Amino acid sequence: MTTLRVIADDAVARTSAQQSSRPRINGLTRYASELTRALIDTAPPECDVELIVSRRPRAELDEFGRQFPGAAGTTPVSMPHGALASAWANGVRVAAGTGILHAPSLFAPLVRGDQHVARQLVVTVHDTIAWTHPNSLEPGVAAWTRRMARRAAKHADAIVVPSHAVAAELAEHIDVGERIRVIPGATSASIVLPADPEVRASWLKLPERFVLASGSMDPRSGIDALIEAAALPEFQDVPVLIIGEDAWRGRRITEAAMLAGLPEGRVRPLGAVSDSDLALLLKRAEAFVAPSYAEGFGLMALEALAFGTPLVHSDAPALVELASGAGYPVVRYNAGSSYAQRLATAVGSVLAGNADAEALATLGRDRAKAFSWRDSGARVWQLHAEL
């Protein structure tokens, strides 16, 4: 029996003291959990998947077993998450299982030197924000990411990235040779409409017409430009609903909307939403806007494509690659006009019916079919077989 050991810390959202009843599922958590399930489902004959996690209470270990049925088991290592992240970043040899090891992030034992270290190790780099937009990350995260990426360049047998755009960008920052493999993510089967869509729509106070986006006042997200765009005539006074928290390091979406001259409620942050509410929002939005200046993949944009929601996106390379002509691209940098004006023109074209929304919806659904977690899982298994 061949065992693929997956470092699964990121696959279950850690619950903060302030959010004990409802941990937020971020992009990394969704990626890690979906990929882990796909690896279990696509395991070749005589192969299985064991979950490796940092030290944690028994109740949390049991949670892994419930969320990932079919796994061969869950094995904790000797240190808690934070201490383990620091130890591995400093090259301390803390074993996480031998044999074949797969990490859905850079949280991995990127060391070499004794029999207690995996003989085959693959890690994942999701974007290059730690180099291009380090201030977008929490303090210390950018430095940790860059350090771990350098260790990956020395010790990893292969590095998985979600797009060719990230592959090209990462090669500008670290020497990875021929070890990069592009294996994208996909949409989640859990994002389905609620049983009571009208009740949920009423509870969410959804307007009859609205544009949907996701992000914060982090400058990288481009939400500031979208708010400016919403104040322009082309937007036809259609409200903008934004998945994400209002505040980012003292900057608030609601305050930015007020300063742009927009009436209260024209731009509304929704906070974190459930999978079923996300499905409802995507289904009813007249357009989904992905205005970010930098992305690694664009999972929310892909989810919009899957629901047939017309996609307006920036010309960030990863988003252009993802949409592949199924969206409405907007140039980020152009001396001839502001980014906000170009966003307003693009969104306004969709709202006014000048852009063929039906054609965009069909193209989007077809494009989304090119991505599947089963395919991604099978490609990870194939990668390890080739190594």
Rank of each mutant, 00 (worst) to 15 (best):
D375C: 03
A370N: 12
V122P: 13
L121P: 13
G364D: 00
H102K: 08
A306E: 08
D175A: 14
P310G: 07
R284T: 02
R266M: 15
L101M: 05
T3L: 04
D218K: 08
A149I: 11
T187E: 13
A156R: 04
V125K: 06
R5I: 07
L206A: 03
A306R: 14
L280D: 00
P69V: 13
S33G: 14
R66Y: 15
V289C: 00
P233K: 07
E60N: 08
L204C: 02
I52V: 15
A96C: 15
A318K: 01
R150S: 07
G377Q: 02
A287W: 02
I243C: 00
V161M: 02
A272V: 01
L193N: 08
A257T: 07
R268T: 15
H173V: 11
A89Q: 14
R268A: 04
S221Y: 06
E295V: 02
A143T: 12
A323H: 04
I7G: 00
D277E: 09
K283I: 00
P310H: 07
M300E: 03
A95Q: 11
V330Q: 01
H384Q: 15
T309M: 00
S78C: 11
T74P: 03
F235G: 00
N354R: 09
S16P: 07
G73W: 08
I52G: 02
T309W: 01
A230N: 09
W144G: 09
A72L: 10
T75Y: 02
Q67Y: 12
V347E: 04
A370T: 14
P23R: 09
S349H: 10
A95W: 11
N135E: 15
L319D: 08
G296W: 01
A225D: 13
A85F: 07
L121W: 14
G271W: 11
K369I: 01
A189L: 12
G140S: 12
T309A: 03
R150P: 00
E303S: 06
S54P: 07
S376C: 03
R284I: 01
P317R: 00
P80E: 13
P291C: 03
D277V: 02
D237M: 07
A335K: 15
L319A: 04
A43W: 11
G97Y: 07
I174C: 14
W248T: 10
V94E: 06
R342P: 06
P44C: 03
P104S: 10
E178M: 01
S16A: 12
V49C: 01
